[in-house]
Design a protein around this nucleic acid. Sequence first.
DNA 1: TAATTATATGAAAATGATTTCATGTTCTTG
DNA 2: CAAGAACATGAAATCATTTTCATATAATTA
Lengths: 330, 330
Amino acid sequence: MATISDVAKLSGLSKTTVSRVINNHPYVSDKKRERVLKAMKELGYIPNPSARRLRGQLTTTIGVIVPRIVNPFFAHLVNSIEQAAYKKGYQMLIGQSYEDKEKELAFLNLLKTKQVDGIIMTSTENDWDIIESYNEYGPIILCNDYINQEVAPMIRLDQTKGAYLGANHLIERGHQKIAYCTGGLFDEQGKGKDRNQGFQKALSEAGIKINPKWIFIDQHTIEDGKHVLRQILEMEDRPTAIFTGSDEVAGGIIIEAKEHGLLIPNGLAVIGFDDQPIAEILDPKLTTIRQPVDLMGERSIEVMVELLVNPEMEIRNYELPIELIVRKST
Amino acid sequence: MATISDVAKLSGLSKTTVSRVINNHPYVSDKKRERVLKAMKELGYIPNPSARRLRGQLTTTIGVIVPRIVNPFFAHLVNSIEQAAYKKGYQMLIGQSYEDKEKELAFLNLLKTKQVDGIIMTSTENDWDIIESYNEYGPIILCNDYINQEVAPMIRLDQTKGAYLGANHLIERGHQKIAYCTGGLFDEQGKGKDRNQGFQKALSEAGIKINPKWIFIDQHTIEDGKHVLRQILEMEDRPTAIFTGSDEVAGGIIIEAKEHGLLIPNGLAVIGFDDQPIAEILDPKLTTIRQPVDLMGERSIEVMVELLVNPEMEIRNYELPIELIVRKST
DNA sequence: TAATTATATGAAAATGATTTCATGTTCTTG
DNA sequence: CAAGAACATGAAATCATTTTCATATAATTA
């Protein structure tokens, strides 16, 4: 690989001048700039990022933590982040936390060692106190997941409203016996908590009591959804509708219902969350709450880049619209 | 951040000795090693990767190129690669080529600038002549996609056999009028070509002629599949079965068939490729050809790590098993 | 016991960039 | 036209590490 010295030698100028051209510093005459550019092209010169980093320059790499990339919601989110990053000349380093605290910390360490300029977290496993300690090494922003304090920029949705819209829709369809199925645990913080609140608000406004037997926690996959449906079938007093925290779980419920001859939506109305491609594939098609994934990715990169340019930037929340998509499963 | 000099100062030893401890060089006395380790722990010292890279050390980062991460097949592949890489202490840098030659080259440049130790390509957009020119900067291995020369290690499946199995299955079910739907173009190299051959072999063995009107090329998404079905419905002479290059396209066909009241498999038998989660979700469940994604990811990392340790390693192919999964769509 | 050889350690060079400082030229401005 | 400001250039320092070279001591061998 050609180095800056090679370029300097070939162009008959100093490394300093070459460096100035690379970083388009103003004080370079047009003639010499031309000579440098010509030499650079001739040698196929690319500045060595390790050397630039060592001098405290930016890495033009942004880290993204996701729980698991095979979850289509996160695949889409990662996709939109990567697209936006590429447009701005950034690379994307991906890490899967697999809901493991250690893995999350291992990834945050990349910030400490300046391998990434900043990190976008789409989920958080550790407490914020711990994550915060990495913040001094570079910006951390939360996208999708969030916590209820204004400590870092957050790209978030009004989850409370989303859950409220969904629950309300079920109530309007005449349901009184509504089950609830969440990805998190019940006393959690952030996203899950807000959804719980929205759900509860809708029900209490309609004067409906929540039956604790109809609450399912820690449900994530299609398999989990199937299992939930089997549990419901065994109940004496069954719910007539179920609100789920993800399209995948909703999908599992619908697939298993078909297996057991339970009709959707007449036997059980099902509502999902995310509006993933699967929502259109299921039969019946899934009523769900759409999260504007592309917007979230784009906005995250925008905020990250601003923050890298101006680290003193004001920390605030960016709330994006959330929307109910009514299809055939309710 | 603490530097190696800080550790040297605190431990009262030289940078050299500290470096020796970090890289566990043999010639360090146990006593001093202890002192260094203690100082390192006390300062929370982590070596600066940029500086190490600059000195020509490995980056412990492996680049992975995928066409698009939202394609569940590639999401799973990336997942298995990341898992395997993490276990061996490597990070994974992802780039989406979006089937764009420029983007692919931009990513290959990371090798040139030593930002990654090696690159795993799960698809290739540029000709091998061009890709090969990056090979001198670090190992490139092909996983999933491949070319028909032994120029780089390839983790591949016997695609010819896969397509043969699928086509044969349709023929055994009594079909004579079989359509073919591929992701690539028709005269392509590598994966697509082998599949074409397998398909053709099965048909010619059964004495069946291929109807060129029933060949669909460049089909990738669910939407593409829907479109294919509409085209079939408009034909006077319709096929009774269709072989597709991906579960997603097959899914689109099945969904659209339902929309038009065409029964699967009686009106049209459909066979997919990949055995993605969607295959189990579709109604009827999809007959498909399973690719051992987890194995492919694992093997790729194994080979990559070996190759990094011993760059002179013999180049060879690693062929993994491929399998027909019969469900309800045929 | 003298001569190798293996073990231990550190000073200084090297890696490839950017930044600081010094110096010289050209342009404004009073 | 003198003096200060703006422009243009390069030598050398700097970033955090590894590697080379030099040197000293301990262990082995002849």
